[in-house]
Design a protein around this nucleic acid. Structure first.
Lengths: 232, 232
DNA sequence: GTCTATAGCCTGATAGAC
DNA sequence: GTCTATCAGGCTATAGAC
């Protein structure tokens, strides 16, 4: 179990009243180094596989000796944890933004998951770390995992909206969550394994996703309604 | 690239006329050792991850010293290749058997894929090696890969049957292959990542598979027919 | 076919000088 | 915060005795 809380070091502290400059030079420089370590780590995972990440390779690419990395991260597993947490936070932000710009209910759910797919393919090594769990010895810390719970709640809320609006018939929200997870993980798994250079929307698999989402009402048929807004 | 042909050593040669005994003791003993090495290798991958396979760990569990393993396999990658090939052959056999016992067309396709899912969960480490490609440095040899092509051809034939029988409307066979691959890989990915101890048919994901297969005619609607056999 | 011994590489992580 | 030096251990693979 990883207990070191890494995120506190990354952002600017909002409870810090004193300094005139938001970050002094040393702190800013440290943050930049942390950013670069994580950027390099994602590159290594993309090129050589998520499991191939090593302190030594990061140090080589950063142009320092391996012990220097330990000034920023206590261990290799802490680097995995930071990648996991940053990935979850960014993924949540992207999905939330896409959902906010779509109609509530099924359109929002679809838009959120398409944004998720786009992000996952643009960050596929981190996405694999987050959702496929290829490193058995790594267990994310509760802090790193938290955004993932929030992401599922976003999806559940959209599904509840869809049912309330009559876009879907009465359904167990959890079942629908599992169904759409199969869709998104299916297209992403196939895209990552078979079309490693294509982004979302291209190739033989990810274009299927909107069609799959359109099938959901066939599994949970909406009840016929008198006062559906001016269509049929 | 792996060029050593391993399968020739595994099976009994059919072009070998001379010996009265089908296999002499030495050859049989050798075959048993090879079988045990591969069985142990699959166990290691299941417990510690596909990438964690090592000659040293196999030797420890077999109760020999690492150099002894090299009398049976030229390298670790050759062990991956043998696992890949045996897995593909067995998977093909299982799928073919299930399809032969079902009605042609969509029922055969569904039965074959359900048998595939069952096999993949019962042999999940080898299935991951075969279909998720988690070891970037490993590329299967053409001999090992061949059964996979045959497996896809089985699926294509069943889809063509389904179209010919009017179970599906006119569709590109390749598109349907990609669609069902998304379904099966989706439920398997989620099952493997989230329900590591459940077999096919249990849990929150694999029971969705038949429902997903039943949706295919909604994507490729069959044309209305006069002479459909005594139903409707 | 088994073993011991070993070469030669890699790794994560720490101690301590500067 | 950087370095050198080092520990302790892992790994693949080979050489050669038995």
């Amino acid at each position: 179990m990883i207990t070191q809380v890494i995120v506190a070091e990354h952002g600017t502290s909002t409870t810090d009243p004193a300094p005139a400059r938001p970050l002094d030079r040393r702190a800013r420089r440290r943050r930049e180094t942390i950013d670069e370590i994580l950027r390099i780590a994602a590159d290594v995972m993309t090129q050589d596989g998520v499991n191939a990440l090593s302190m030594a390779e990061i140090a080589r690419r950063l142009g320092v000796q391996p012990p220097s990395i330990y000034k920023y991260f206590d261990s290799l597993l802490h680097i995995y944890d930071a990648l996991f947490q940053r990935g979850q936070l960014e993924h949540l932000r992207v999905m939330r933004g896409a959902m906010a710009n779509a109609q509530p209910g099924l359109p929002a759910l679809t838009a959120g998951l398409e944004a998720s797919g786009q992000w996952c393919l643009a960050n596929r090594s981190v996405a694999q770390l987050m959702f496929w769990r290829p490193v058995p010895s790594f267990e994310p810390s509760p802090e790193a995992f938290a955004p993932s719970i929030e992401m599922v709640n976003l999806q559940k809320a959209a599904i509840a909206d869809a049912i309330a609006a009559g876009q879907l018939g009465p359904a167990e929200v959890d079942q629908v969550v599992h169904l759409v997870s199969v869709f998104i993980v299916g297209v992403l798994s196939q895209a990552i394994a078979n079309e490693p250079d294509l982004e979302w929307g291209y190739g033989r698999f990810t274009p299927l996703f909107p069609q799959l989402m359109a099938l959901i009402p066939a599994l949970y048929p909406p009840p016929p309604r008198q006062n559906r807004p001016h269509r049929r």
